[in-house]
């Protein structure tokens, strides 16, 4: 594999790498993490908060730990759970790829089906699942199930109203 650009910081961090990681793996993982941090200021803020926080270990070890989670570029959309996850990562020591099926593991492939979700998880479960979905997926659900025939709401970038629309449609169906 060709050497892809490595952020300057990665080279500095490389000196601290655990002996069990190859330089390629480390560089690759750090690139993925660095890219995600650059992409997502909110995640960067939370991670930097976790590093600096009173319960967090010294920053040099804290920064390294997430990189042992090879293949996990981090789901940035789970609010407080991210903080918990950072904490969990810090405790783990062995290298183990962690693979998750997105925000909710049982969403299944493709566009999630809110009617199936309601049947499986009940109304609260559905509400929680919708809370984790972003505009694009919410809009896709509305489109797939023809929940907004005139398309008025679908054209607005208003995730909260799309969630309500979906919940109402599922509730109507349930009655």
């Amino acid at each position: 594999m060709d050497a892809a650009p490595v952020a300057a910081n990665d080279q500095e961090r490389e000196q601290h790498r655990p002996a069990s990681l190859s330089p390629e793996t480390l560089a690759r993982t750090l690139r993925a993490v660095a890219a995600e941090l650059e992409r997502d200021p909110e995640l960067a803020r939370r991670i930097s908060g976790a590093i600096a926080g009173p319960e967090a270990p010294p920053s040099d070890t804290a920064l390294r730990q997430p990189t042992s989670e090879h293949g996990d570029t981090g789901n940035t959309d789970e609010g407080d759970k991210d903080d918990e996850r950072v904490a969990t990562r810090q405790k783990r020591s062995t290298f183990r790829p962690r693979l998750i099926t997105g925000a909710s593991p049982d969403l299944g492939p493709g566009i999630p089906d809110p009617f199936t979700l309601q049947a499986k998880r009940g109304e609260e479960g559905l509400r929680a699942a919708l809370e984790e979905l972003r505009l694009g997926t919410l809009r896709a659900i509305v489109r797939e199930h023809h929940l907004d025939p005139e398309g008025k709401l679908t054209r607005q970038n208003d995730a909260a109203r799309l969630r309500v629309l979906i919940l109402e449609a599922v509730a109507r169906n349930h009655d």
């Binding site: 570029t73 099926t101 997105g102 492939p109």
Partner: peptide, 17 residues
Amino acid sequence: DGQANATYALTGRVHPV
């Protein structure tokens, strides 16, 4: 791409299996 960014952009899922 193992970063799976296109997957996230088009589906919201992170590293599906």
